[in-house]
Design a protein around this nucleic acid. Structure first.
Lengths: 203, 203
DNA sequence: CAAAAAATCGGACGCTTGTCCAGAACTTTT
DNA sequence: AAAAGTTCTGGACAAGCGTCCGATTTTTTG
C-alpha cells in the first residue's frame, strides 16, 4: 500500500537535500559580498554580480532579501560555534581550555577575514528591525553557551551572571576586531596574549 | 581702516551662530526619527516628515545624508560625554565615583530612551563605510577618556590597557541596553546594582 | 521703504532598489 | 523520445531614494 509513497518520500527528500545544498552554496557566495559591503550597502544585485548568479535565482531559493541574509548569518555562525565548541572539547585542563578559547577568538579575527563584522551588523539591525530579532537572539544564546561550556570544561560552577561575562568578552572581541581593521593591526601572537590574559582573569 | 570689517565680522559671526543653532534644532528633530528607525531605514523623507521640515531644508543646512547623520550623532554624543564628565567631577571618594558612573549608565539606558542604539549603529556602519570612520573613532576616544577620568578621580594609576577596560564596560552596556528592549526589562534599581557590582570589580 | 540676501518650499530628475514573471534551458520521469 | 517537472535567465515594473533647483516667502540691510 505505501510502496509508492515510500519512493516518493525518498525522492522528495533527495530534492530537498539538493535544494538545501544549493542554498548553502549561494549563501557562501553571498557572504563574500555581505562581509565586504555590510547589510545596509549590499543589494541583491551586488550579491548576484559578486557570485555570478542571476537576480531571479536569488528569489527562486529565498523568499526575499531578509530571508537570504538571515540564512547567510545563521549558516556561518553555526559553523563558527560548532568549530569553537569542538576546540573546547579537545582541550584538557585549565591551560589548554584557555589556550583553545583564545586561539579560536584570534582565528576568528585573523583567519575569518573579519566576517564577524556581519554578525555585529545584523545584531545591530535587530535593534531596529524585528525581522532579525529571532536570529540575533538565537545566535547570542549560542555564544553565551560557549562561555558556559568553557566553565563546564574546567569543572567550575557556572555563575549566575554568565551572560554578563559573555558581554564583556564580546565587547573586547569587537574592540580588538575593529582595531585590527585600522591603520596598525597587531600580530597574531599579541592578540593571543591579550585574550589569554583576560580569560585567565575570568575563567 | 578696519572699522567696517569689524562690523562685518561681527555680523558674519552672528549669522554663523544662528545657522549653527538651526542645525542643532534640525539635528534634534532628526534624532527622533533616527533613533526609531536606525541608519539603514531612515530616509531624508522620514526625517523631514517626522520633524515638519521640508526636504530642501535638509539640504540647505547639510551637505548630504551622511553629513546630517554624522552631525546628529556627534551632537548628542558630545552632550552625553559632557554630562557624564560633570557627574564624575561632582563625585568625591570611591563610592561616589562608582555611584555616579553607574547612575549615568543607567540614565543612558532608561532616560535617554536608548538613543545610544544609534551610536552603535553608526559605529557599526563605520566598519563598512569610511565616511563614518572619523566620527566613530573620535567618539570612541572620548568614551575611553571617561573611563580614564574615573581612574583619575580615584587617584588610581591609569592602566595601560584602559581601552580594553572600556571595551568590557561597553560590551556590558550594550548587552543590558539590548536586553532592556526585550520582553522583560528590569528595574532601574536592578540595573544600577549590576553596574555598581561590575564597576567595583574594575575601578 | 525699497533692494538685497537668506531661508524655505515642493516638485522634478535620474538612479537604484526589491520583487515578480514569462519563457528558455536543462533534468528527470514515464 | 516524448512529457512533465525543475531550474535558471534577463528584463520589466513600481516604489523609494538622494539630490538638485527655480520659485516664493521672510528677514536683513542700506
Amino acid at each position: 500500500m505505501n510502496e509508492l509513497p515510500a519512493k516518493l518520500r525518498q525522492r522528495n527528500a533527495r530534492k530537498r537535500a539538493k535544494r538545501e545544498e544549493k542554498k548553502l552554496q549561494i549563501a557562501s557566495s553571498a557572504l563574500e559580498a555581505l562581509k565586504e559591503l555590510g547589510y545596509a550597502n549590499t543589494s541583491l544585485r551586488d550579491i548576484a554580480a559578486k557570485s555570478d548568479l542571476s537576480l531571479g535565482m536569488l528569489h527562486y531559493y529565498f523568499e526575499d532579501r531578509s530571508d537570504l541574509i538571515i540564512f547567510c548569518v545563521r549558516t556561518y555562525k553555526d559553523e563558527f560555534v560548532r568549530r569553537f565548541s569542538e576546540a573546547l572539547d579537545r582541550a584538557e585542563g585549565r591551560e589548554q581550555v584557555i589556550a583553545a578559547f583564545s586561539g579560536e577568538l584570534v582565528a576568528a579575527i585573523v583567519d575569518d577575514e573579519m566576517i564577524h563584522k556581519l554578525w555585529y551588523d545584523i545584531r545591530n539591525q535587530a535593534m531596529f528591525d524585528d525581522t532579525f530579532r529571532p536570529v540575533a537572539d538565537e545566535i547570542e544564546a549560542m555564544l553565551i553557551g560557549i562561555v558556559r561550556k568553557a566553565y563546564r570544561r574546567l569543572d567550575r560552577e557556572i555563575p549566575d551572571d554568565i551572560d554578563l561575562l559573555y558581554a564583556m568578552l564580546d565587547g573586547v572581541f569587537r574592540y580588538l576586531m575593529q582595531r585590527q581593521m585600522g591603520p596598525d593591526p597587531v600580530s597574531r601572537e599579541q592578540l593571543r596574549r591579550i585574550f589569554e590574559r583576560i580569560l585567565s582573569q575570568f575563567l
